[in-house]
Computed example of a mutant assay.
Amino acid sequence: MPITPQELAVAREELARLDPAMAHVHARTPVFEWRVREGGFVGLFQMIVEQQVSVASAASVWARLKTGLGEVTPANLLAHDLESLRGMGLSRQKATYGQGMARAQMDGAIDLEHLSTLDDASAIEALVGLKGVGLWTAEAYLLLCEGRTDVFPGGDVALQEAIRWADRAEVRPDARGAYARAERWRPWRGVATHLLWAWYTGVKKGQILLDTAE
């Protein structure tokens, strides 16, 4: 579960204390809620469905899946062949990934419903062991679906750009640079991620202005 608003406020203050750049971001970013998504098999599969398509397209495919399957479960997904799933809007690749995840869940190769019993590193290792789940997806799942407070998706481009703004740098860090930069924010790298995302979104929507020096 995500941390409470009170805990989030304390963590933001701690990040500001740890890093002047984060103090700058903290001072300019209003209070926000932790972004929460459904977890378990459904949450991970939905993240796969949403990748590389528009928000509207993803919503449409997910609605068709729920209608076609009755309920999105591992058993129901495996009860349909690939062509049937393609008829519900999935690409062959995503249908294959989904069935692989469903089979792993039902066979006990992974327990997505109780992944919270594993520490961050072990959970990431288990997730990336599933075909179709890369490092970014694994980290984003743990951050958004399980509310973990020290998971950092360093490959996220928006996050990298927000780091560039915060550091007033000319060049956006790559994933390796972002991970290295985030070391200073332990044990609140997940909170730093949400704070930087909120700041980035506010700037892009024109709700927060960057200083001219930035």
Rank of each mutant, 00 (worst) to 15 (best):
F32K: 05
V133A: 07
E139H: 11
D174Q: 05
S116I: 10
T73Y: 08
L127T: 01
A192D: 07
H114Q: 10
S60H: 12
G39I: 07
H80F: 08
L130G: 09
R168M: 08
T67H: 05
G39P: 06
M22G: 00
P173W: 15
M22R: 01
P2G: 03
A59M: 03
S122A: 14
R176K: 15
G40Y: 12
G68Q: 10
G206H: 01
A58R: 01
V31P: 01
V10D: 12
Q160T: 06
A75M: 13
L77P: 04
L65N: 09
A162L: 08
E71S: 11
W136G: 08
D19G: 01
E146V: 06
T29M: 05
G108C: 07
E161D: 10
M88T: 03
D120C: 02
A169Q: 08
F152K: 09
E139K: 13
L127D: 00
V151A: 10
F45N: 02
G100N: 13
T201Y: 06
P20W: 13
V49M: 10
L112F: 09
P2I: 10
K66P: 00
P5E: 01
G147C: 03
D150P: 05
F32P: 13
G70H: 05
V42K: 07
M22H: 00
A198V: 11
E83V: 09
W188A: 00
N76D: 00
G155F: 06
S91I: 04
G132C: 09
R35F: 13
I110V: 15
T137G: 05
A58N: 02
Y200H: 15
M88Q: 03
W165I: 10
A182K: 08
A178W: 07
K205A: 13
L195R: 00
R189K: 10
G177N: 01
R35S: 15
S57T: 15
G108S: 09
T73S: 08
W136S: 07
W62C: 00
E113H: 11
E7I: 04
Q6L: 15
H114T: 07
D156V: 11
L77M: 13
E14Q: 12
G40C: 11
A140E: 06
T67L: 05
V55T: 01
A178G: 11
W188N: 05
R86V: 01
V25F: 03
H80V: 08
L196E: 03
E183Q: 15
L77C: 02
A162F: 13
V133R: 12
A121V: 15
G100P: 13
V10C: 05
P153N: 10
R35C: 11
F41V: 09
Q160W: 09
D107R: 13
Y179D: 12
Y141W: 04
A175G: 13
T193R: 02
I3H: 06
R103F: 05
R37E: 13
V191S: 02
